[in-house]
Structures are given as C-alpha cells and as structure tokens.
Amino acid sequence: MLSLRHIAWLCVLLTACSQAAITIRYPLLATANDPQQQYMLGLLRLACTKAGENCKLQAARPMVQSRAILQLQRPDSSIDLLWTMTSKEREHQLQPVRIPLYKGLIGWRVALLGEGREQLLADVHNINDLRAYSAGQGHDWPDVNILRAAGLTVLTSSDYEPLFSMLNQQRFDYFPRAVIEVENEYQAHRNSGISIDPHILIHYPTAFYFFVAPGNKTLAGILESGLERAIADGSFDRLFRQFHAGALRRLQLNKRVVIRLDNPLLPAETPLQRKELWYSP
C-alpha cells in the first residue's frame, strides 16, 4: 500500500510528465529574410496553447521548399512540420492540417516590378492583357503551374533571392507575391529600385497549411484542435490582424483590377464551404 508521501511524489511525477514539452522542429527558409516566419511561429504557439500542450519550437537548418518536403517524408526526418501552399501532389505526399493559415490570402497576388517600371501594368484590364508580360517564380512553387495553366508566361529560379535581381535585369517583367508578404519583400529589396504595382490584383483559390509527416496523427491532432479553438474564441483572427491588417489597408486592394485564375491544383478536400476560414478583400 502506498504511503501519502509516495502518492504525493507520484502526483508530482505525473504532473511533470503531463507538462513535458513537445519538440516541434521546423525548417528555415533558405534565405536570410523569411517574411512568414514570425507569424507562423506565432500560430504554432497559439495552437499549442489552445490545445493545452507545452511545445518547444526548434529551428532546423535552412533548406529550399522542395527539399523540406522530401525531408519530411523520411523516417529519420530532421523536421516535424513545414508550412507551405497546398496542392494535390503535396497532400498526397504529406498530411495537411486543413486550416488556411493566411485565410486564403496566399492566393491574392500583387506584383513587384523592376526599377523604373512602376507603370508597366497600368493598362492591364484582363487576363489577355496580362499574357503580354512574363512572371517570375520559384521553380518548386505550385504557383508556377497555376499561372501557366492560365496561359501566362513564367520564368523560374531554383533559389529565392536571385528572383529579385532577375526582376531588375528584366529577365521577366513582374514578380507576383501574396499580399501578406509583398511589403516585407519590398522593404528588404527597396534599395535595388523595385516597386509595388498599384494597378492589378491576381486571384486564385488556394490555401497555406501546416503539413506534418504522413502518419503523424498526434501532431496533426494537436495543431488542428488548437487552431479550431483559436478560431472559435477569436484569438486566431486577432493574431491574423496583428500581422496583416496594416498591409491589407495600405495595398488598397479594393481599388485594383482583379484578374481571376482557376487553380487546377486545388484539392477537392479544401474547406471552401467554411466561410469563417477565408478572407475576401
């Protein structure tokens, strides 16, 4: 029979075990300036808190997106999750947590333009007009196939940072960026003379999710339950507004010509019917 002292020690041990930290390893983007990282880490902390878990977030070494996806599929993976745009292929390779982290704004795109080309897209009013110009993208981004499926010309780079010098060298005409990242990227490269186009807004339906390794139902469950609770109590939206409300206001999206594209890569399971998960400018 256990003494009261033994029972007390057992309770202490059980409490300590229940509060043990869950380590979540995430990849760093292969660039010195990742405009998404602080928001994503904020969402991870929020999800863990709402799920009642003590999570320790740990950065892994930098890697490009395609390498991170391959790494997460390995049994000895050095990462536990990544955040990226969804596609049919990616949802086949990895396990998505189907809460759109940017409320769909990853599919609302504003163009960065090269030095001295601020008015390049002033006369673009429809998709046919836009086809006269070439876009730049990362070679492993789903956006490449979305833009090409719409008949747009796309040039690619295997690395992220060279895209900005390619833009100024007029290797391509415009660099479509999500409205939640374009200001940060502009600020990081403004000394090169780039500008933000004030005229058009490209839209295609898509989502940016946390992805975990196939079969990692425990971590997927923690993230899903935590994010759902954050959505229900309004803390998700508060964090979203904290990071993005200013940029959305300054970009004056309602004054732009909207060019809508289909997304042939969008999985059928995308929760488009849940209106509370999406933002519309």
Results as ranks from 00 to 15, higher is better:
Arg98Ala: 08
Arg98Lys: 15
Arg98Leu: 09
Ile99Ser: 05
Pro100Tyr: 09
Leu101Phe: 11
Leu101Arg: 08
Leu101Cys: 04
Tyr102Gly: 05
Lys103Trp: 12
Leu105Tyr: 04
Leu105Glu: 12
Leu105Phe: 10
Gly107Gln: 09
Gly107Glu: 08
Gly107Val: 05
Arg109Asp: 05
Val110Ile: 15
Val110Lys: 00
Val110Ser: 11
Val110His: 12
Ala111Tyr: 07
Ala111Ile: 03
Leu112Tyr: 02
Leu112Trp: 04
Leu113Met: 15
Gly114Asp: 12
Gly114Ser: 02
Gly114Trp: 13
Gly114Asn: 06
Glu115Lys: 14
Glu115Arg: 15
Gly116Cys: 14
Arg117Cys: 10
Glu118Gly: 11
Leu120His: 13
Asp123Pro: 08
Asn126Thr: 03
Asn126Arg: 00
Asn126Met: 03
Ile127Asp: 05
Asn128Val: 12
Asn128Lys: 15
Asp129Gln: 02
Asp129Tyr: 12
Leu130Ala: 07
Ala132Pro: 13
Ala135Val: 09
Ala135His: 06
Gly136Tyr: 02
Gln137Thr: 12
Gln137Arg: 13
Gln137Pro: 02
Gln137Val: 00
Gly138Asn: 10
His139Cys: 12
His139Ala: 15
Trp141Glu: 06
Trp141Phe: 13
Pro142Ala: 11
Pro142Met: 01
Asp143Thr: 09
Val144Asp: 12
Leu147Ser: 00
Leu147His: 10
Leu147Gln: 10
Leu147Glu: 02
Ala150Asp: 02
Ala150Gln: 04
Ala150Asn: 02
Gly151His: 02
Gly151Asp: 13
Val154His: 02
Leu155Ile: 10
Thr156Asn: 01
Thr156Met: 11
Thr156Asp: 05
Thr156Ala: 03
Ser157Met: 10
Ser158Glu: 08
Ser158Tyr: 06
Asp159Thr: 15
Asp159Phe: 13
Asp159Val: 14
Tyr160Asp: 07
Pro162Arg: 07
Leu163Ser: 07
Phe164Cys: 08
Ser165Glu: 13
Met166Ala: 06
Leu167Met: 00
Asn168Glu: 02
Arg171Asn: 09
Phe172Asp: 09
Phe172Cys: 00
Asp173Thr: 03
Asp173Val: 10
Asp173Ser: 11
Tyr174Ala: 11
Pro176Ala: 06
Arg177Ser: 11
Ala178Pro: 04
Ala178Lys: 03
Val179Lys: 05
